[in-house]
Amino acid sequence: MFMGRSVEAFSAIASDIGVRRFADEEEDSFCCRVAYSAARFWLSAFCMDDGAVGEEGLTKQAMNRRLKTWVSNLDDVRPGIGAWFDDEGKGLSTIYNRLIDVGDLAPKGFSGSFVATRPVKVDLSSRMSCIVGFYDPTIAGANICGHDVRSMVNSGLLSLVHSENALTPRPTPWWVRDCDYMTWEKTSNYDEVKFADVRTMRWNINRPDIWSNAPTWVNDLALARVDGGLAGPLFFVAVKGHGRVRMSQTTRNQAQELFFYLRCESGHQAVARYTMLDNFHAQAVLPVGFLPGGDNRVIDAVGWPVEGSADRSNRIIRTETIPLLEEVLSENYIGFRGATNERK
């Protein structure tokens, strides 16, 4: 009886903030997703309840304390919520750090505090934008940045709206843009040079099993690595031409991007996959941590973590976000397909 009443309480919250229960979803999963999305609005409210009408905000430590108390109260109503939020570990900080990343919370100068931001529309793709910043989702018919609050799609920590946005051309890849400014070296300058095997099914260039002695050339490009000793591996873009091979050192993030490009161009594209749960929800494994800053922040916030609030890859997403994710991942040379699609 107690559990049934607790679900009713979470259903009321879900109705206020626009979270739907998917087909055959277990009660625990539904309650955790509702609490996760609600945490976004509560954290902004906490920052505005700072004793200075929201002008001073809260430090991360203060946010952690208030969020922990809030989660503890929810756990009294629905036991298990606290464990899902990992309120004794890093789960709580994961949430407010994601909100800082997307702009719901903003630093107040160099004070170490964060304030709630006013709502603004941010374009994410050619056909979807999000509303970041605090607004009251319970006010029926409220107009937020030109959009009726009832038309917004809540997916994780983002309020999404359909919009026709100007297409932004893909930036020139860094290995083309910076070519004339790179410092080039001979492979003979190093005792041993390894090359990424772009035919692998692996994603992470930190894995030792994706490296081999022979390069796999794609458009006369390859990704190389040498042992950097205590500093860790050093990554290079390698090019061949006029019978010689040259290398130029690059960062790990740029090397990861080049790796995805080489896999894509060679016909071995990295593909993230999703499984439909019903007409409105899907479960996806998203490559959080593999994309450049802005794109990574989007895919990290766009859905509900599955295993716990700190889960970095498994997400429940609204199906309206599938075209958005297809576009964002495609710009990073990664595919996004349904799990039942034929592998190509």
Score class of each variant (00 low, 15 high):
Met1Arg: 13
Phe2Ser: 10
Ser6Lys: 08
Ala9Ile: 11
Asp16Asn: 13
Arg20Lys: 15
Phe22Met: 13
Asp28Ala: 15
Ser29His: 11
Arg33Lys: 10
Tyr36Gly: 04
Tyr36Gln: 10
Arg40Met: 14
Leu43His: 00
Gly57Glu: 10
Thr59Arg: 04
Arg66Asp: 09
Lys68His: 09
Leu74Lys: 07
Leu74His: 10
Asp75Arg: 07
Ala83Phe: 13
Phe85Gln: 09
Asp87Arg: 14
Gly89Arg: 09
Ile95Lys: 10
Lys108Gln: 13
Ser111Gln: 15
Ala116Gln: 02
Arg118Gly: 10
Pro119Gln: 07
Asp123Gly: 07
Ser125Gly: 15
Cys130Lys: 14
Gly133Phe: 01
Ala142Pro: 03
Cys145Ala: 06
Asp148Pro: 06
Ser155Pro: 07
Gly156Trp: 07
Gly156Lys: 08
Ser159Arg: 15
Leu160Ala: 05
Ala166Pro: 12
Thr172Asn: 01
Thr172Arg: 03
Trp175Thr: 07
Arg177Asp: 02
Asp178His: 02
Cys179Ile: 01
Glu185Trp: 12
Ser188His: 04
Val193Asn: 06
Thr200His: 12
Asn204Gln: 08
Arg207Gln: 05
Gly229Ile: 03
Gly232Cys: 04
Ala238Phe: 00
His242Tyr: 11
Arg244Asn: 13
Met247Lys: 01
Gln249Leu: 01
Ala255Leu: 12
Glu257Thr: 15
Cys264Arg: 15
Ala270Lys: 03
Tyr274Ser: 07
Tyr274Cys: 04
Ala282Val: 15
Pro287Thr: 02
Val288His: 02
Val298Glu: 05
Trp304Leu: 06
Trp304Ser: 04
Gly308His: 12
Ser309Pro: 04
Ser309Thr: 11
Arg315Asp: 03
Thr321Lys: 06
Thr321Gln: 07
Ile322His: 11
Pro323Asn: 08
Glu326Ile: 00
Glu326Gly: 14
Val328Leu: 06
Ser330Glu: 13
Tyr333Gly: 09
Gly335Asp: 07
Phe336Tyr: 14
Arg337Cys: 11
Thr340Gly: 03
Arg343Ser: 05
